[in-house]
Design a protein around this nucleic acid. Structure first.
Length: 295
DNA sequence: CACCAGGCAAGCC
DNA sequence: GGCTTGCATGGT
C-alpha cells in the first residue's frame, strides 16, 4: 500500500479488503451519500470529505496529508489487517462446518468498521431504534442542519454533527423540526448526561466492553442493541455483536434453524466469533440485507 | 388499511 | 425475573 499527496488529494494505491460500497451500505453510519458509481461524500470529525475508489486506488479528495494522518487514516481503519480477520473467521467457519460466514465475507469483504465520533454514534443509534435506515439518515441530517456548525468544502456548505452542549440547550419543542418522534426525549437525555459530564463517552474506550456498555445503558433510549452499536462503532470495542432484525434473521435462519432467544444468540456470537464479533456481525448484516432474507 | 423499520421503556404478572 | 404493549413517523 502506497500513499501519495497530489497537492489537492490524498491517494492510496494497493488498498486491500476495502470497498466503499461495502463500508457505507452496511448500516454502521448515516452521514455518507453516494454521488456516483464510485464516489461517496460525507462529514465526520467536523470535516466534509469526498472519497472515490477505482479498483485498489482510493482517493480522498480536497484534503491534506495532515487530515489524512490525523482523521481519515484512523476513521477508515486503514492500518488494520482485515485479511487476517477474515482468515480467522474462515478458520472458525471450517471448524464449525460453517458455510455462511465464508459466503458473507465473499459478499462484503471490503467492509471496514469506521471509527466514528462517540457522541455522534450515541445520538445516531438512539435515533435508529425501531426505525429504517433512509429515515434515520434524514433525521440525522436535519439534526445537523439545524444544530450543527457549517463547514465549507469544494465550494459547498455542509453541516457538522452538533455537540452535546448545543443539544443540551434544546427543548423538546426545538427538536420538533427533526421529526424524531418519541426518540427526541432520549436525544435530550443523552445530550444532558454528556454535557454535564455524568457520562463521558471518550473515556469509555479505556473501559472493557462490558463496563463501557453498562455506562451507556444508563442513558434513556439506550438498550442492549443500541449500546452494542455505540461501543462497536464509536468506542472500538470490536467484540460487540449488535443483534438487529437482519442479524437476528440470518443467525436464526442459518445457525439455529429456527427462532432463538436473545441470550442464546449473544452466547453463540461470543463463543463462535469472540473478539471478532463486531466484524462477523458486519459481514452477516451486509449479507442478510443483500439476500433480503424474509421474516 | 395494515404492517414494518439496525428497539426501548413502562407496565403487567 | 420474563413477557406484552405503546410509541412518532414515513414508506410500502
Amino acid at each position: 500500500m502506497k500513499i501519495t499527496d497530489t497537492g489537492n488529494d490524498i491517494v492510496i494505491h494497493g488498498a486491500e479488503n476495502f470497498n466503499l460500497e461495502h463500508i457505507f451500505e452496511c448500516g454502521q453510519c448515516f452521514r455518507w451519500n453516494k454521488l456516483d458509481a464510485n464516489t461517496y461524500l460525507g462529514v465526520a470529525y467536523g470535516k466534509p470529505l469526498r472519497v472515490s475508489q477505482n479498483g485498489d486506488m482510493i482517493t480522498f479528495h480536497s484534503t491534506s496529508m495532515h487530515d489524512y494522518q490525523y482523521i481519515w487514516r484512523r476513521y477508515f481503519d486503514i492500518d488494520r489487517d482485515y485479511g487476517a480477520i477474515q482468515a480467522q473467521l474462515q478458520r472458525q467457519g471450517v471448524a464449525y462446518e460453517d458455510a455462511v460466514m465464508p459466503q458473507a465475507i465473499r459478499h462484503g469483504g471490503g467492509i471496514r468498521i469506521l471509527a466514528q465520533e462517540p457522541f455522534e454514534a450515541l445520538i445516531s443509534f438512539i435515533i435508529s431504534a425501531n426505525n429504517n435506515i433512509p429515515r434515520i439518515k434524514l433525521i440525522v441530517e436535519r439534526l445537523c442542519m439545524h444544530f450543527g456548525d457549517t463547514a465549507e468544502y469544494e465550494g459547498e456548505i455542509y453541516y457538522t454533527f452538533p455537540s452535546a452542549e448545543r443539544l443540551a440547550q434544546c427543548s423538546l419543542a426545538d427538536l420538533e423540526v427533526i421529526r424524531a418522534g418519541f426518540r427526541a426525549k432520549y436525544i435530550l437525555d443523552a445530550a444532558a448526561k454528556v454535557a454535564s459530564g455524568e457520562i463521558a463517552p471518550e473515556p469509555l474506550r479505556d473501559l472493557d466492553y462490558t463496563h463501557a456498555k453498562a455506562e451507556l445503558l444508563k442513558i434513556k433510549g439506550v438498550g442492549d442493541k443500541v449500546a452494542n452499536c455505540i461501543v462497536l462503532f464509536g468506542l472500538g470495542h470490536y467484540s460487540a455483536f449488535p443483534v438487529d432484525v437482519w442479524v437476528r434473521r440470518i443467525v436464526e435462519h442459518c445457525y439455529f434453524g429456527g427462532s432463538a432467544a436473545d441470550c442464546d444468540i449473544a452466547e453463540f456470537a461470543r463463543e463462535r466469533f469472540g473478539e471478532y464479533g463486531g466484524f462477523a456481525q458486519q459481514y452477516l448484516f451486509y449479507y442478510a440485507r443483500e439476500l433480503k432474507i424474509e421474516r
